[in-house]
Simulated assay, not measured.
Amino acid sequence: MSATRPTRWPRAFELARPVASRLSFLTYATPITPRWRALQAGLTRSGEDMLVYNSDLPGQSDTMAADESGRAILDRIRAGRVDGLIVAEAALQGAESELRTLGCPCIYIGDLPKPLVDSVSTDQSENTRLVARHLIERGHTRIAHVTGPHHLRMSKPRKDAFEGALVDAGVPIIDDLRFEGSFLAESGRRAADWLVDQMPKHQPTAIFVAGSQMARGMMGRLYDLGISVPGDIAVATYDMHNTLEDLRPRLTSVGTKPSQLAERALEMLRERLSGKETGPPRREVIPGELRVGQTT
């Protein structure tokens, strides 16, 4: 995200997490919209403009592609005059170490493997345990699970925490009730078809979906297939994107609002640019919350 103005105000850049190449980066269909809008609002109040880079490539489906596209964007940033950088998780997977070479303050939204630069995140593992315990407390013992793609680092803590919570509660993990999605709505629709195929044999009573865009796709497809939520299957999701607010029945969800992370990232960047903060890289964690809706 780049903010530019002819005065002394700094410019900032955001590399957004990969989104489907068929969607415009600034459309409301993208998973980063709440984060982008929060950054835009904060910059607009101070009279700044914004430029957004998207690290997605057509056909991108693995870590190497994400790495290459992220590095290409960093090269373009190095070629210009950049005062500050905000990076959204997954945009630079595999190339995070290069953030130190840009010569400008950088804030990373998400979990950095090493404290290279300032970061702000939420505890994905604890958030996921919250929703797992909620489903277990509701009496569910045959729970299906739609994970994120294995090549994205953010998928692992959600998967491990969810399955770990099941094990701790003595709830069996059924391999046939695990589906790997892509974090996009289309994979949620495919997961709904898969879930219906599993119902006769395994009779799941609930499903946890590791991303809200997948959950949106799943809910629409389940409706089309005549599956009642929560009558036939309870549904809970990770993420608190505002795209869920108009969905009915209201989804049970867990996480932190993307706008909260974006607003704090912008504050941290300005603290660096103003010289208010000059110490070693900071790591801040914003607590998540469980919002029980009508789907569980």
Score class of each variant (00 low, 15 high):
2 S>F: 08
3 A>D: 14
5 R>G: 13
5 R>D: 15
8 R>N: 13
15 L>R: 05
17 R>I: 10
18 P>Y: 00
19 V>R: 05
23 L>S: 08
23 L>N: 01
27 T>L: 13
29 A>L: 15
35 R>W: 13
36 W>K: 14
38 A>D: 06
40 Q>M: 08
40 Q>V: 04
40 Q>Y: 05
41 A>N: 15
41 A>H: 12
42 G>Q: 02
45 R>H: 13
46 S>K: 12
47 G>K: 03
48 E>G: 15
51 L>H: 08
55 S>P: 10
57 L>Q: 08
58 P>Q: 02
60 Q>K: 12
61 S>K: 10
64 M>G: 11
64 M>D: 15
69 S>M: 11
70 G>V: 01
71 R>V: 07
72 A>Y: 11
75 D>T: 13
77 I>F: 09
78 R>D: 00
80 G>T: 00
80 G>E: 01
82 V>E: 06
85 L>H: 06
90 A>I: 11
92 L>R: 01
101 T>C: 10
102 L>F: 02
104 C>E: 05
104 C>S: 06
109 I>V: 10
110 G>S: 07
111 D>H: 13
115 P>T: 12
116 L>Q: 01
116 L>K: 00
119 S>M: 01
122 T>K: 08
122 T>W: 09
125 S>D: 09
125 S>I: 08
127 N>W: 06
129 R>K: 08
130 L>C: 08
131 V>F: 05
135 L>D: 04
136 I>E: 00
139 G>M: 09
139 G>D: 08
141 T>A: 12
141 T>P: 09
142 R>Y: 04
145 H>N: 03
145 H>D: 00
149 P>L: 03
149 P>Y: 00
155 S>Q: 02
166 L>Y: 03
169 A>S: 09
175 D>N: 13
182 S>C: 12
183 F>G: 11
184 L>I: 06
184 L>P: 04
187 S>K: 05
187 S>F: 09
189 R>F: 08
190 R>E: 00
193 D>W: 09
196 V>G: 06
199 M>Q: 09
200 P>R: 07
203 Q>E: 02
206 A>C: 01
209 V>D: 04
209 V>C: 00
210 A>P: 09
214 M>K: 06
214 M>W: 04
217 G>T: 04
218 M>Q: 00
222 L>C: 09
222 L>R: 10
222 L>W: 03
231 G>E: 03
234 A>H: 04
237 T>E: 02
239 D>H: 07
239 D>P: 03
241 H>P: 11
243 T>S: 15
243 T>E: 14
244 L>R: 01
245 E>W: 12
246 D>P: 12
249 P>I: 08
251 L>I: 05
255 G>S: 07
255 G>C: 03
255 G>D: 02
262 A>E: 01
266 L>F: 13
266 L>K: 14
270 R>Q: 15
271 E>F: 07
278 T>C: 12
279 G>K: 00
280 P>I: 10
280 P>F: 11
282 R>L: 03
284 E>G: 10
285 V>Q: 01
285 V>F: 03
288 G>N: 02
290 L>W: 07
290 L>E: 07
296 T>E: 07
